[in-house]
């Protein structure tokens, strides 16, 4: 299995969920209000969304804004740390790549 959100109904902290929707490269992804963009992507089962210089897949590594591995474009703004940016309903997220043109993905 992959990353997921603890189901609200069984969560010991007793919380509520207000759903929100963002798009990732045009595809709709559902999350809940309060999550970071990275949290929404992870809980939707996406582990990687960026490509490094060699074409290698990357996602969250440090989770606290230090490593810059999780960069995405949010509403046309490039290089946003997905782990630090709260997701807003309707955000249009586009994935990024540092791969040089012509590099064979490894």
């Amino acid at each position: 299995m992959s990353p997921r959100r603890v189901p609200a109904e069984t969560d010991a902290v007793g919380r509520c969920e207000r759903p929100l929707r963002i798009t990732v490269d045009g595809e709709t992804v559902e999350g809940v209000d309060g999550q970071s963009v990275a949290g929404v992507l992870l809980a939707a089962g996406r582990l990687a969304w960026r490509r490094g210089p060699s074409g290698a897949a990357r996602g969250v590594f440090c989770g606290i804004g230090v490593c810059f591995d999780c960069l995405v474009t949010v509403n046309a703004e490039r290089d946003v740390r997905a782990c630090r940016r709260p997701a807003r309903d309707g955000d249009a997220v586009t994935t990024q790549s540092r791969t040089a043109p012509g590099t064979l993905p490894r």
Binding site: L42, A56, V60, G63, I64
Partner: peptide
């Protein structure tokens, strides 16, 4: 560098701060 390898702090921040488990 593979996706799915996290710092321990990331796993904790996601679990404590967002209720997301990494795996």
């Amino acid at each position: 560098e593979l996706p799915g390898v996290f710092t321990a702090g990331a796993a904790q921040a996601l679990a404590k701060g967002e209720r997301v488990v990494v795996g």
